[in-house]
Amino acid sequence: MSAKVEIGFNLNGAQRTVEVPREMSTLDMLREVIGLTGTKYACGEGECGACTIIVDGRSVNACLMFAPDCDGRSVTTVEGVVDTPLGERLRDAFVQAGAVQCGFCTPGMMVQAKHLIDMHDGKLGREAIKRGIEGNLCRCTGYVKIVDAIAAAAQPKG
């Protein structure tokens, strides 16, 4: 039988304690144990970015991260991202730029976009944005408007 591991971590700003099987992915923990469904499963192998989350300030694929490894760390999902001023700006930019079609890749794109903007100090050109989202697949938009949205959100207003 797989051991259960009790872990405590900061999730979107609040402390959480959960018990998870040692082999469970962080994606399954978020979706099945905690019930936060904004983080999407689309490949389970780190090839599509739909499950992107931020852990201790760095974006990772939740599907590749063992849930017990969240212990003691700070985890931000799309639900947490949109609660920040940058996240709101990103959401508005995605909406206004037409970067959302079926929307399934969008939460992962939003989180990766936040990471990308956080890691750059304002200077974020289109080519850097494209490289920055190379691990996020989108089948609907052709990426143009996603790049538009991230470029717009990267420019702080005022």
Binding site: G46, S59, N61, Q112, L116, I133, G135, N136
Partner: peptide
């Protein structure tokens, strides 16, 4: 190497 997310992990 892979993607930003995988380079981070």
């Amino acid at each position: 190497f892979a993607s930003s997310q995988i380079r981070n992990a």
